[in-house]
Design a protein around this nucleic acid. Structure first.
Length: 236
RNA sequence: CGCGUUGUGGAAGA
């Protein structure tokens, strides 16, 4: 079943969901992990309805969802904007005492609320955390970015630094993107330097893209071009 | 420490 599940996962990740399902059906029995592998395949390829019906089928087959299953389904709720279902899952997670089970489930909750447009709820979940890792911070900052709450996004980055968490390349991609949407060129240049110098993070193509975008919008095409020509890798 | 599944990030275009 382990090997079979790995096969399900492989097909699912390649987007060959028919094959994944066939491999899944050939398994002698289905445990929660093989169900999760199939469900995440559907989630990752934006087949939310399939994921939902799989989740129900799992229940029907008498397999209890674990925390991983919930993380996947929270993502579905977020993509669909299914607020009510999201609340239900949140309540169930609390009931099972899984909020303490690791930050994966909490950042998934933050992400879900943000994707549903509920930044207050996202913030509430986040604030209850006693220990916050980089991904938790990133999820909240990305939520503010998504909802156009630029000031909140910047503020949370400051808080993050104050509280001694280390921002990573994802944090700065998000922040540079906020600058890009707001046309905040100087701010972006500053953050870019902070990223390089204070945090010694190697910029990726995504970081450079934000910069180029900003220069382009500011009409400074020459500077944008200069960035592209100096790219440490091939432009796309 | 990992050895079957899970959380956060970019522009344009259609």
């Amino acid at each position: 079943v382990r090997v079979g599940t790995a096969l399900v996962d492989l097909y699912a990740k390649c987007g060959l969901l028919e094959k994944a399902k066939a491999a899944f059906n050939k398994l002698p029995y289905h445990d929660v992990i093989s169900w999760n592998a199939l469900i995440t395949g559907y989630v990752q390829h934006a087949l939310e309805d399939e994921a939902l019906s799989c989740f129900k089928q799992m229940h029907f087959d008498g397999v209890l969802p674990d925390d991983v299953s919930f993380v996947c389904m929270l993502k579905v709720c977020g993509s669909l904007g299914a607020v009510f279902k999201g609340y239900e899952m949140h309540a169930e997670i609390i009931k099972k005492g899984w909020l303490e089970k690791g930050s994966t489930i909490v950042s998934a909750l933050v992400d879900m609320y943000a994707n549903c447009g509920l930044s207050e709820e996202a913030r509430e979940v986040f604030d209850k955390l006693s220990i916050r890792d980089t991904v938790d911070w990133n999820a909240l900052i990305a939520g503010y970015a998504l909802l156009g709450q630029d000031q909140d996004a910047f503020h949370m980055l400051c808080e993050m630094l104050k509280q001694g968490s280390n921002p990573d390349l994802v944090t700065f991609t998000t922040i540079l993107n906020v600058c890009s949407h707001g046309g905040l060129l100087e701010k972006a240049e500053t953050f870019f330097q902070v990223m390089l110098i204070d945090h010694q993070i190697e910029p990726t193509l995504k970081h450079f893209t934000c910069l180029v975008d900003l220069y382009a919008r500011a009409g400074q095409l020459d500077k944008g071009e200069a960035v592209i020509l100096k790219l440490p890798f091939q432009a796309d």
